[in-house]
Design a protein around this nucleic acid. Structure first.
Length: 898
RNA sequence: GGGCGGUUAGCUCAGUUGGCUAGAGCACUUGGUUUACACCCAAGGUGUCGGGGGUUCAAGUCCCUCACUGCCCACCA
């Protein structure tokens, strides 16, 4: 943009964002150099699924990472943000299958494994980059040259190496165990992929007749169809009601089998009827009971959860729900049903497939996690890895200390194929990085690994591990991780274990858990509810900076965020405010020399307002940096908002208009200070609002064409650099400035109370509280006049003279009383009422304050500064009280004269 | 059943070792085309800080308890 151009009245984000993002990428600013002399700072992105599109959750998560990356880079670190995507086994496989069925009417079986995988790669090339492109729209400063995919060659090597090593260590094994089965995806799942939902179900009570004809037992179940796989009925050993039946058999209805009545502690006499049917092949508890009693396993289900031939001819092929109905129908016909109750109970659902899972016995690969967990627990316990908020550590410990074997094999095609080969002749099993070279025939395991089995290596596999690459040596361990608490088990815990086991180091030092975004009613954002806003639309409407700023501004710490699009107005308005502050400055002339450090200015010549704003920006710098150190993004953003809008714009810039009018030296100095402050504000804000700050830094002439705010230093507290802390030199002066503003507010309130239009210039009389303040106010006379929009302001130590100026309403501030002479327009009664009310109120405060200061215990136990503050406060109250009485006396004398 | 949150203005939320009269944004009311901004400026109102008890000179903040609410974990048939 050319300097002569007048800035538009409103900030227009779209063109600015595209322009700067392209520039940053083209100039390689996002690249992290592994040969740098600087301190490294690195983050690995939680790799989004290739099936994913950008959600508000991603926006929050990636904005936070971007803030950290940009902030640390400006602080002087060699910052690198490693991006990439996850192959997302089950999600992608089902997504592509659906796509193929819709477009070509073919399923994966018809295509065959090799062809199907080829199609998935094709699909990925076409659609898999969407989310990465979208991340650019929010400004993510990812090192795109380092983009990785969890199925890239290097990452696949890492997966195979890890698998082989853990196998040889004895942690990974193949075994027949009870697992979670997803009938939709037709694969085994880990425990973490099962979510429990409370659903309405039925509790069926029905009879199993005793084989000897001596009666029957009543059992109760929510899954009657599984009875076709029952191999026993259990009662509690101490249950008197049934003790005599133990050892007998029952005729299992709908089958020709007799099954034993056994005694096992699993049967709870309190629950249901006290008798429980035992289906060892389809229930984890029953499985254990089966083991204890050496019961037969009868697997009655097909992979899609329909019943198989073992369930009997009548039921084979029926879906489990249909089978349930039919079983109940048949039992009813036989007169065996006792009752059917409605109940609510928790049912495990497949997280991805969204259907109830089945538990069944199956041969799968498992990883024993016990030993892996130990150093990972220790790492968090001794704070090598810190959690923010730290309460998540508790969740982490609980899970880690009770960690179960991880079922890692999946019966799908899209993923890392398990590097195990079987020799069907010798029965030999070979596990290795490459296929065996001893004579075969070798048959490779058909299964692939759980997606998370590659994700847990992400922090180092993205850097080329197991090769000792320069980036691995320089950037690992990474610094911070930003992710949602919903994947603490899936991902975070496992990464810590993997880091400790395979690299001998923690993978990251800090983990920041983000909030979860909900809609305004507090519901989870979801496609099916249609309450999931498209961030790209929001960016088009409000701008990326506005979205970023707003979402952090409204994000409560460690809690859910209630989001709606109109909340982005806050950020848009703020960006516009900043824009217009700059516009105002720009209309006054070109950029000042020495704007970076106030070079050449005599500190003693700074005006009180200038010292005041510099002290405030210093405060904001300190607070922002320390907030970011503790991942208190929300706090940092509020701090900057307040600084810019209130302190800088409402007070400092407004007051600066006086000096613009004065012109000459005064104006030159004022412009220099504005530039100094503005450039600090822009840098302070850059990590949060990267686009508008870059644009403004150039429009204002702070930076040349070939420079970027990205490469500027982040503001440090001013006392650390050339300019000494003004607060330390003149604390009283800053108080005086605050007192001036307080007085202005009082004067404005007077006008408003008397319904004097804001644009009408009026006369004010100020009685200062002491000579110092009077001097100060006299120096600030013009400033007061502008801020009050007054025709004239008289400052005096004398009482307001009613006889010459008439009765005037007044407001009392700490530094003085301000009068608004209205020449007869005053409602005396109302004014008196107001003052009396004030007096009463003040008296109340004074009494309370005095009581406190008369309290022996308070004086002896409270810290000295609290006592001093209380004394000071009482003095203020008494001053105010005295002045209120003064005004009342004045009113009364006016009354008398009337 | 266990664990962890939340309950502060009409709404959404700040309030970090207890310490001046508990704050912000939105919404609302009134006034304002003051040469940066109506995506703006000025002024204004609202609180039993979920209930109860306790510790303390002092509690929104710490402790106990109850209520409501959300999330996570748990094999309850």
């Amino acid at each position: 943009m050319h300097k002569q151009e007048i800035m538009p009245k409103a900030y227009e984000p779209t063109a600015v964002e595209d322009k700067w993002y392209q520039t940053w990428v083209d100039r390689g600013y996002f690249h992290g150099n592994q040969n740098s002399e600087k301190q490294p700072y690195s983050i690995v992105i939680p790799p989004p699924n290739i099936t994913g599109i950008l959600t508000m959750g991603h926006v929050l998560n990636n904005t936070l990472q971007d803030i950290l990356i940009r902030w640390r880079r400006m602080q002087g670190y060699e910052a690198c943000w490693f991006p990439g995507t996850d192959h997302a086994g089950i999600a992608t496989e089902s997504r592509v299958e659906k796509h193929l069925r819709e477009t070509e009417q073919v399923g994966r079986e018809e295509l065959g494994r090799e062809e199907f995988i080829r199609r998935v790669h094709e699909w990925r090339e076409q659609y898999g980059g969407t989310i990465i492109r979208q991340l650019r729209r929010i400004g993510s400063a990812c090192d795109w040259e380092r983009t990785r995919f969890t199925m890239d060659e290097g990452l696949s090597n890492a997966v195979r190496k890890v698998f082989v090593d853990l196998y040889h260590k004895g942690y990974i094994y193949r075994g027949q165990r009870m697992i979670n089965w997803c009938p939709a995806a037709r694969t085994a799942l880990s425990d973490e992929e099962v979510v429990y939902r409370e659903i309405d179900g039925k509790f069926y009570h029905y009879k199993y007749p005793l084989s000897d004809g001596s009666g029957s037992l009543v059992i109760a179940t929510t899954r009657p169809e599984t009875m076709l796989g029952d191999t026993a009925v259990a009662v509690h050993p101490d249950d008197e009601r049934y003790r005599h039946m133990v050892g007998k058999t029952v005729d299992l209805p709908l089958t020709d089998r007799k099954i034993p009545i056994i005694a096992d502690v699993h049967a709870d006499p309190e629950k249901g009827t006290g008798c429980v049917k035992i289906t060892p092949a389809h229930d984890p508890n029953d499985f254990e009971v089966g083991q204890r009693h050496n019961l037969e396993l009868i697997d009655i289900m097909n992979p899609d959860a329909s019943l198989n031939a073992k369930a009997g001819r009548e039921f084979a092929g029926l879906d489990r729900v249909a089978a349930r109905e039919k079983v109940v129908e048949k039992l009813e016909e036989l007169g065996l049903i006792v009752k059917i109750e409605k109940i609510k109970h928790a049912v495990g659902f497949s997280e991805r497939g969204n259907v109830p899972i089945e538990t069944m016995v199956s041969s799968q690969w498992f990883c024993n996690m016990k030993e892996l967990a130990k150093p990972a627990i220790e790492a968090v316990r001794n704070s090598s890895v810190k959690f923010y908020p730290d309460r998540w550590a508790k969740t982490y410990f609980y899970w880690m200390e009770n960690i179960q074997d991880w079922c890692i094999s999946r019966q799908i095609w899209w993923g890392h194929r398990i590097p195990a080969w079987y020799n069907d002749i010798t029965g030999e099993v070979y596990v290795g990085i490459a296929e065996p070279n001893s004579p075969g025939p070798w048959r490779r395991d058909e299964d692939v690994l759980d997606t998370w089995f590659s994700s847990w290596l992400w922090p180092f596999s993205v850097m080329g591990w197991p090769e000792q690459t320069p980036e691995f040596k320089y950037f690992y361990p990474t610094s911070d991780l930003v992710t949602g608490p919903d994947i603490i088990f899936f991902w975070v815990a496992r990464m810590i274990m993997a880091g400790c086991e395979f690299t001998g180091e923690i993978p990251f030092r800090n983990v920041y858990f983000t909030s979860i975004i909900r809609d305004e009613q507090g519901r989870k954002l979801s496609k099916s509810l249609g309450n999931s806003p498209d961030p790209i639309d929001v960016i088009d409407t409000y701008g990326a900076d506005a979205l970023r700023f707003s979402i952090i501004y409204i994000a409560p710490v460690g809690m859910d965020i209630r989001y709606s699009n109109d909340k982005c107005e806050l950020g848009r308005n703020f960006a516009n405010k900043l824009w217009n502050a700059c516009r105002y400055r720009k209309l006054q002339g070109g950029v000042s020399e020495g704007f970076r450090d106030l070079a050449g200015i005599d500190i003693a010549r700074l005006t009180s307002d200038e010292k005041w704003i510099i002290s405030w920006i210093n405060e904001a710098i300190v607070m922002t940096n320390s907030a970011l150190e503790e991942f208190r993004f929300h706090y940092a953003v509020h701090e900057i908002y307040e600084l810019v809008w209130s302190n800088f714009c409402d007070w400092f810039l407004e007051a600066s208009k006086v000096r613009m009018r004065q012109g000459g030296e005064a104006k030159v100095q004022a412009l220099l200070v504005i530039d100094f402050v503005l450039f600090k504000i822009l840098r302070l804000l850059h990590p949060f609002m990267p686009f508008v700050t870059e644009e403004l830094a150039h429009v204002m002439g702070f930076l040349g064409e070939d420079q970027s705010i990205m490469n500027e230093s982040y503001p440090k507290p001013i006392k650390d650099i050339a300019i000494p802390s003004i607060m330390e030199i003149e604390p009283d002066l800053l108080d005086q400035v605050e007192a001036k503003f307080q007085l202005v507010r009082a004067g404005r309130a007077l006008k408003a109370n008397y319904n004097i239009p804001d644009n009408k210039k009026v006369y004010f009389y100020i009685k200062a509280v002491n000579a110092d303040m009077a001097t100060f106010f006299n120096n600030e006379n013009e400033s007061l006049r502008v801020l009050l929009n007054a025709s004239e302001v008289t400052i005096s130590l004398d009482d307001f003279d009613v006889s010459t100026m008439g009765v005037a309403p007044s407001q009392i501030a700490n530094a003085g009383t301000i009068y608004l002479p209205l020449r007869g327009l005053v409602d005396l009664k109302e004014e008196r009422r107001k003052l009396n009310r004030q007096k009463k109120e003040l008296l109340g405060w004074i009494k309370g304050s005095q009581a406190k200061l008369n309290n022996e215990k308070f004086l002896s136990k409270a810290p000295q500064d609290v006592i001093n503050a209380a004394r000071e406060h009482l003095r203020e109250l008494q001053h105010r009280f005295a002045r209120t009485e003064e005004s009342l006396t004045m009113l009364n004398s006016a009354d008398d004269s009337n």
